[in-house]
Write a protein that binds this DNA or RNA. Structure first.
Lengths: 106, 106
DNA sequence: TTGACATATCGAGAAATCCAGATATACAAT
DNA sequence: ATTGTATATCTGGATTTCTCGATATGTCAA
């Protein structure tokens, strides 16, 4: 996955999306019931399911799904399916490369 | 002038605007005739006039003027008028705060 | 004061984005 | 097989952005 700054900036140009990204930085803080659907022993570190994100974001299900998809396409989120749930988490690898890009090239 | 990340991200969500910001990082490299209209002894460090930017950006005069205005409103550029010319330059203060914001809060 | 030039602002059509409801898909449980 | 739940995708109207040409404003030079 390569890094397209403009796509990323578009993804971050919306308050709800920006909030989601920030919330996912501290999932246990912002999503107390994190991982509630996962069987014992399975943990998707930092991942939160769409429904929990939607509830917090107070936007429609389709909107949140599209937001998450958009952020994933921009490379800043990644998803893991588990049963009927999709867990999204930050792609820290890309995000730190972006921070470096911002610092040195912008 | 305070920092509104979303406005900044919108400003950076366009290839031409992003290019302008990058060009202004090394004005002497990208705008060889920089400061051509300034009288001797007057120098607007890092500043480039709208016409020179327009020529390089290959967009209409009004478009470039609006782009520059938008970037200024976002805080990432600042302008200095000199006679009939307006020189735009990067607001490095804001930009480095943004880089730090990106690194620590995004 | 007139004319020329640099830049800003206005107005508008085209294109893109926003965001919801409706529907589809995928999986789980019965 | 059927039902229920989670998520994705489709469709489309409303809003915003893009980008230009036209026009206005401001400044300098003659």
């Amino acid at each position: 996955m390569f890094m397209e700054p403009i796509r990323v900036f578009k993804a971050l140009s919306n308050e709800t999306r920006l909030n989601i990204l920030k919330w996912l930085k501290e999932p246990e803080k912002h999503f107390p019931k994190q991982g509630a659907h996962l069987p014992k022993g399975v943990s998707i570190k930092g991942g939160v399911c769409v429904g929990d994100i939607q509830e917090k974001a107070k936007a429609s299900q389709s909107t949140v799904s599209q937001y998450l998809n958009m952020m994933q396409n921009a490379g800043i989120l990644e998803s893991v399916r588990y049963g009927q749930w999709t867990y999204y988490r930050r792609n820290e690898e890309i995000l730190s490369r972006l921070a470096e890009y911002f610092k040195t090239e912008i």
